[in-house]
């Protein structure tokens, strides 16, 4: 019994040493070949809604608790876009921050919540008007 268990442990250790990959992979394999500039998506987002895109940029934000989103810097200054994944399907670790990510996903729009708008109107708060947001639903990523 001792010999079997020790042999299995050696096999596990040997197998785990083959885990080195060229970049860390998350979720599905990347299928889109052509990259789209994030600035282009942010400039005319409606042209991309519902379409699958491949974007590249520095990871400038990561969901701290659940790892369910990352923010990718645009090719233009001051701009970034959020890549949201379904909770648990992909978990982005915090050490990705500062690294370069190649992400595939579908652009979608988040409409302001009607209740939120109603509440603001009720309270006469003209400052907090929720905006339409564009995000990418992340399907797969490679981070280097």
């Amino acid at each position: 019994m001792k010999r079997i268990v020790l042999s299995l442990l050696v096999v596990f250790l040997f197998a785990s040493s083959f885990n080195a990959e060229d970049g860390k992979k998350f979720g599905n394999d990347l299928t889109v070949k052509e990259k789209t500039l994030i600035s282009k998506i942010l400039e005319t987002p409606n042209d991309f809604v519902g379409k699958k895109v491949l974007v590249e940029g520095t990871v400038v934000g990561v969901c701290k608790k659940r790892g369910c989103w990352i923010d990718i810097a645009s090719d233009k200054e001051y701009e970034k876009i959020r890549i949201k994944v379904n909770d648990g399907e992909i978990v982005f670790p915090m050490e990705l921050k500062g690294k370069t990510a190649l992400v595939e996903g579908e652009v979608y729009v988040i409409q302001p919540h009607p209740e939120h708008k109603k509440d603001n109107e009720k309270e006469g708060d003209e400052c907090v008007v929720p905006e339409v947001k564009y995000q990418i639903k992340g399907l797969g990523a490679v981070v280097k």
């Binding site: 520095t58 400038v60 810097a73 200054e77 001051y78 970034k80 050490e95 921050k97 500062g98 690294k99």
Partner: peptide, 20 residues
């Protein structure tokens, strides 16, 4: 320094291993 990001004209973020 791994990389950096200018989030606004006055704000810049610098990324190091395990540190922002």
């Amino acid at each position: 320094l791994q990389s950096s990001f200018k989030s606004s004209p006055n704000k810049t973020e610098f990324y190091f291993e395990g540190k922002t």
